[in-house]
């Protein structure tokens, strides 16, 4: 198998690696880029646990090949806020108990952030649909939606004040 040289950005930092053509983005992130916050749930692209943003769009990193991300930018949950800080959406998950075991949380946060960035006034039902590709087995989704709505509302208040 011929190896490929790739270079990408992970949370704003340059990463370069030599990869097999069949290596997944998930494996690349976990083994070469210190991205242990990206979790493997099923490896079939079903559960959304491994969601990352690729040039701002959510993808299942288990079904994305590493070679496909050459020259592109990847955001994981650790890219949401500066090191040691929490993004207001993460704060909202904490306050509203949107996380129990926490395994789905990184992917859930990224999907929610992506959707609200594009649809800042999305209502609860639209948010519910937006999360349909991210499974959670602990919370029943209710408190996750509470958290996302709280973040949406807080953000709108801030922008009104601006």
């Amino acid at each position: 198998m011929s190896k490929h040289e790739i270079a990408l950005e992970v949370n704003g930092r340059p990463v370069s690696a030599t990869v097999d053509p069949n290596m997944s983005l998930l494996e690349l992130l976990r083994t070469e880029a210190g991205g242990l916050e990206v979790k493997l749930g099923c490896g079939e692209g079903v559960c959304g646990t491994c969601t990352v943003l690729l040039d701002g769009e959510p993808v299942n990193s288990c079904l994305t090949f590493a070679v496909q991300v050459d020259g592109r930018a990847v955001t994981t949950v650790r890219g949401l806020a500066a090191e040691g800080e929490l993004h207001p959406l993460q704060e909202a998950f904490l306050t509203h108990a949107g996380s129990q075991c926490g395994f789905c949380t990184p992917g859930m946060l990224l999907t929610a952030k992506w959707y609200l960035d594009r649809h800042p006034r999305a209502d609860r039902e639209e948010l519910r649909s937006a999360l349909s590709g991210n499974f959670c087995r602990c919370t029943g989704y209710t408190k996750i939606l509470d958290a996302i709505e709280a973040y949406r509302d807080a953000r709108q208040e801030v922008s009104v004040v601006d």
Binding site: E37, G102, T105
Partner: peptide, 10 residues
């Protein structure tokens, strides 16, 4: 543990 979970660092 909940702080670390939302941060992705647990």
């Amino acid at each position: 543990d909940f702080v670390e979970k939302v941060a992705g660092t647990l």
